[in-house]
Design a protein around this nucleic acid. Sequence first.
DNA 1: CGCCAGGACGATG
DNA 2: CATCGTCATGGC
Length: 294
Amino acid sequence: MERLSLRDAAPVFSIGVPAAAPYSLERTLLSGQCFRWTVTPHGARGIVAGAVALVQQDRDRLRIAWEGASGSAAQLIRHLGADQPLAEIEAGLARDHVMRRLLPRTSGTAIMRQEPWECLVSYVISAFNNIPKIQMSVRRLAHYLGNRVPGGSGRSVEWAFPTPERLADASWEALRQCVLGYRARYVRTLARLVADRQVDLDAIGRMPAAAARAALIELPGVGEKVADCVLLFGYGHHEAFPVDVWIQRAVERWYFHGRARTPREIRTWAHERFGMLAGHAQQHLFAGARLAER
DNA sequence: CGCCAGGACGATG
DNA sequence: CATCGTCATGGC
């Protein structure tokens, strides 16, 4: 009984850490860049550095509660992109007429700084897939192959993302239950490369963007688009501009009068037009394209 | 029940 | 280098 009451006890939130306006926790987490956070009326719930974090936002503050082991607030803020000067960034973007039109509905969306390994595997899984199923696969990977996070209260998120070692040794049957489809081969090969230290994700993180991009593209299941996602969401290279079908359609429609452009043309164009803000521009275009679809 | 999906990959022009 | 067919599987 006592254990139960502890489990069900209301989470104790910190007083709050500042999140500079116009940061929006909800828009950031629902923008499609992460696959394992859950947003509920009570707040957001996710795992950062092996600990379960509950986060609420009221106005310009983020209130944080940890379940079980407590992590670092600074690390969480960085993970959530709440340390970015969004006012300045969006002011820069607003010089663009399309951005001006999108921002009223997308303002506050920051770029997360996810853990590279989970980010890499997630986006390898994303190829030729749909978002609900990507979420399912990533969550099942954690559920079936990840270590249980100490102190989890028995809700949806309480397993850490599996380590490369664990994924490298996973049986085909375990991987099959994660409905990876033909991508299972990529994921396991990737896991073996990292586990065997033939690939060093930390070292890639210390490279300049162009070199890191080239190193990522060498990996199985990683093309230009996935590499750009990992650069942007995992390594903090905010000039990266992943071009998926949504971005391609949006850019062709809103900037090129509906004329066809190749993904590579669009990427070059975005770098010239938005420079170091390209990644942020991509977030608003992606959100705008999906909002327009409903 | 068919269509489709945050692309990557290998094979052809 | 541009184009094209293929790919596992579950949402919708």
